[in-house]
Design a protein around this nucleic acid. Sequence first.
DNA 1: TATTGTTATACTCTATAACTATA
DNA 2: TATAGTTATAGAGTATAACAATA
Lengths: 146, 146
Amino acid sequence: MTSDLRTGGPLLSDTAFLLARANANSLTAAHAALGEHGLRVRSYTVLALAVSEARLSQRDIAEYLRLDPSQVVALVDDLQQRELVAREPDPNDRRAKVVVATPEGRRIHARAEAAVAAAESDILSVLDPGEQTTLRDLLFRLAFPD
Amino acid sequence: MTSDLRTGGPLLSDTAFLLARANANSLTAAHAALGEHGLRVRSYTVLALAVSEARLSQRDIAEYLRLDPSQVVALVDDLQQRELVAREPDPNDRRAKVVVATPEGRRIHARAEAAVAAAESDILSVLDPGEQTTLRDLLFRLAFPD
DNA sequence: TATTGTTATACTCTATAACTATA
DNA sequence: TATAGTTATAGAGTATAACAATA
């Protein structure tokens, strides 16, 4: 770049722009870390919810990940074909299907989680530990503003 | 959702996930604000750079916005057809094209910028002014880690 | 009537490779 | 040899509407 735009350049006072660019950096690192585990960010997050004890329906997953329910169908289809998750009937609502991880899904997730954590740690290393905690708190409030 | 996942739910300690979700909220608000101005987030940011005094080439814009140069071609094509920006030759490098806003481009940008600022202010209203400043500082360092 | 999962469709975004003209 | 812009293409992500089964 001709001049150094990092001091006073356009859009730099725009939090939304900084958020988008920081997220792009984060996504690139996460995809690189997940590639060798056969996952993408989307499928990794769905798998992570399936591993949790929350027993979420596809609708819950869609809301939590801010995805359209029809996208969750495709993501779960893929993970189910690879036998990493299963659809279980919800005894309280016969319309709903609870997405749970298989033992193999848990194994893949454990390895992928470690890789993602390492990549995230690397990305966040430009901040000291206290700043990392502050950032997580502030982002949580923007992520779940209700 | 069945239980309240906001306390101790899966992925909540994952800064990358919170960053992605906060960014999704921000993008939705920005798109809603830009719609009536005939812009999307991508075209708005390119227009904002064209309005600035930096006289950036398409390559500069690609780097700044973390886009592939071929995407910038399409974005500038669109803005140029609508006569909001023009491609000017760079006297120092005959390969490069500087992207500059037209007077109409500046007018559209000014209105769009106000709408985006209002939407951003709304999104950030869950944080107090000092927290907003802190967040911007931390995100800047993640956005431009060099 | 409203909601869950599903299918289908169209559109936007992303990633890659190749080409040309200039450096 | 390398870089700026361009074209082409395929794949991933997003948004919307409609439908059957169930609440």
